[in-house]
């Protein structure tokens, strides 16, 4: 691939300080991710997967090393700018869905646009509805999250992640709370979005799930142990769960 990566990480480290004790969570990570890729990060518990995702997602700053996101040197950014970047370039999907229980599905999906300046309410709703259509939930726009199944809630979360046209979607164990069938359904949504050109990085413990990605990054003790392409990539049969 000759084009420049949208995520470029060099010798990235992260050390957590617990009083006197230093916990090295990342110990020199190099990683390039290109536009349109679908990456699965795997590895044992405590190997630093979530830490890496948080750094990529600009939720936290590294202890040392370089990180360029879409050409921007993230290390130089203030807290405010990091929030801006999360708002414009990142879409998060969490294991626990993390929807606002008191807001409707539509309002949940609108949320990132509320924090982006100058988008009128009508356009916000239109974009949120379009995102909901992409995950097949346009008809549930006025439901509350508690009125939806787990898989549906996760699809709402995915709609929220794509509503601001991010550079990359970061999903930390998005199927961790779902049964196998629903997991496959969610991976189908991801694959569909990926085919529409959206870059996806997800963390998973399950080989089955990782098989939906193009490349697998294996982590061990805060370092990348191996990066391998996925052979016999799985395809979710779209439409099944919709």
């Amino acid at each position: 691939m000759a084009e420049t990566p949208i995520i470029s990480i060099r010798n990235l480290t992260k050390v957590y300080r617990l009083g006197e004790v230093e916990v090295p969570a990342l110990r020199g990570v190099d990683l390039d991710i290109y536009r349109g890729e679908f990456i699965a990060i795997m590895g044992p518990s405590g190997s630093g997967k979530s830490t890496l995702m948080n750094l990529i997602g600009c939720m936290d700053v590294p202890t040392s090393g370089e990180y360029y996101l879409d050409g921007v040197d993230v290390r130089r950014l203030s807290k405010n700018d990091l929030a801006r970047i999360r708002n414009k370039k990142i879409g998060f999907v969490f294991q626990a869905f993390n929807l606002l229980a008191r807001a409707t599905v539509l309002e949940n999906v609108e949320l990132p646009l509320i924090y982006a300046d100058g988008i009128p309410g009508r356009e916000r709703r239109a974009r949120a509805l379009r995102a909901l259509e992409l995950v097949g939930l346009a008809d549930r726009a006025h439901f509350y999250p508690t009125q939806l199944s787990g898989g549906q809630q996760q699809r709402v979360a995915i709609a929220r992640a794509i509503v601001n046209d991010p550079v990359v979607i970061l999903a930390d164990e998005p199927t961790g709370n779902l049964d196998t069938r629903t997991s496959v359904e969610i991976m189908g949504v991801f694959q569909d979005l990926n085919e529409r050109g959206i870059t996806i990085v997800l963390v998973t413990h399950e080989l089955d799930i990782a098989q939906f990605a193009m490349r697998v990054v294996e982590m061990r003790d805060g370092q990348i142990h191996r990066i391998r392409p996925v052979e016999n990539r799985r395809r979710a049969e779209l439409g099944v769960g919709y």
């Binding site: 807290k79 405010n80 801006r84 708002n87 998060f92 606002l100 949320l111 924090y115 982006a116």
Partner: peptide, 16 residues
Amino acid sequence: TREIGIRMAVGAREVD
């Protein structure tokens, strides 16, 4: 707290 975390993750700044 969790709601605040969600809002921050989707781009709410401190002032927001």
